[in-house]
Computed example of a mutant assay.
Amino acid sequence: MSTTVTSPSSSSYFIPNTGSTARDYCMLERNLLSHLKLALLLSILSASIILRARLVPVADYDNEDGGVPLASVEFAAAVVCIVAGGWEYYQGYWDLKSGRAFLVAPKLHLTLMTLVATTVFGTAIALLVFD
């Protein structure tokens, strides 16, 4: 089975489905969908902080914008997660298309996802301490 891929010069060519090409492509799609799911969860967390759904610390509950800084950080983490997922997908796609090995994750992706993980962990600690 072969897959037709159009190149920038508008001519098409076949990428033969040998070895693990199809499995690798499915892996790239699965990783992108996992990044989007994490971004959606972070966005929901951001919205629930803004709507004060039992996540805003008691000391900030009376303030007009009590949860906005924390919600902004969570939403920024969601955007970074989408960027990291897109970067990993397109980088892996071009590596797959050119036949290069891509088992080692790009350093930019690792850095961005470390920032997202630190944000999530820091938010969990902050909400536990304030509660």
Rank of each mutant, 00 (worst) to 15 (best):
V79H: 12
L55C: 10
Q91F: 12
V80P: 00
S34N: 10
V79M: 13
D60Q: 14
A47G: 10
L40I: 12
A76M: 10
I49V: 07
Y89C: 14
D65I: 08
L41V: 01
P57M: 11
V58A: 15
V58D: 11
I82S: 10
V79N: 13
I50P: 00
S72T: 14
V73F: 00
S43G: 07
L42V: 01
Y90W: 15
V79Q: 15
L45N: 04
D60E: 12
A78Q: 03
G67R: 02
Y90I: 15
V58S: 15
G85F: 03
E29Q: 12
L28H: 04
N63K: 09
Y90C: 15
R52G: 08
L41R: 08
L38S: 05
L55W: 01
P69S: 09
P69F: 12
S46Q: 02
V73L: 12
Q91A: 14
V73Q: 03
V80L: 15
L51C: 12
E29D: 05
P69D: 05
V80Y: 05
S48H: 04
V56K: 00
R52V: 08
L70M: 13
C26Q: 13
V68H: 02
D62P: 00
D62M: 11
R23W: 06
L38F: 02
S34W: 03
R23S: 14
L55Q: 06
P57Q: 03
D65W: 02
L70R: 05
Q91Y: 10
G67A: 08
V73T: 06
G66A: 09
Y61C: 10
P69K: 10
E29V: 09
A78E: 03
M27D: 06
N31A: 11
G67N: 01
V56A: 02
E74Q: 13
D60A: 13
A77T: 02
G85S: 07
A22L: 15
C81P: 00
G67C: 07
L70A: 13
P69I: 08
S72P: 03
F75W: 10
L41D: 08
A59E: 11
M27H: 04
E74T: 11
Y61Q: 09
R30W: 03
L28N: 03
K37C: 13
L45R: 09
L28T: 02
R23A: 12
N31D: 15
D62E: 03
D60H: 11
N63A: 10
A59G: 01
R52N: 08
D24V: 04
K37E: 14
M27P: 00
E29W: 02
E29T: 06
L36S: 02
L32D: 06
G66K: 02
G86Q: 12
A39L: 05
L28W: 03
K37D: 14
D60K: 09
L41M: 07
M27Q: 07
N31C: 12
D62R: 05
G66W: 01
Y61T: 05
L36G: 00
D65R: 12
E74H: 10
L51E: 13
V58L: 14
E74C: 15
L42F: 02
H35G: 01
P69R: 10
L70I: 11
I49A: 01
S48G: 04
E64T: 08
M27S: 09
D60G: 05
D62G: 08
E64W: 02
F75K: 13
Y89W: 14
E64Y: 04
E88M: 13
H35F: 05
L36A: 05
P57N: 09
I50C: 06
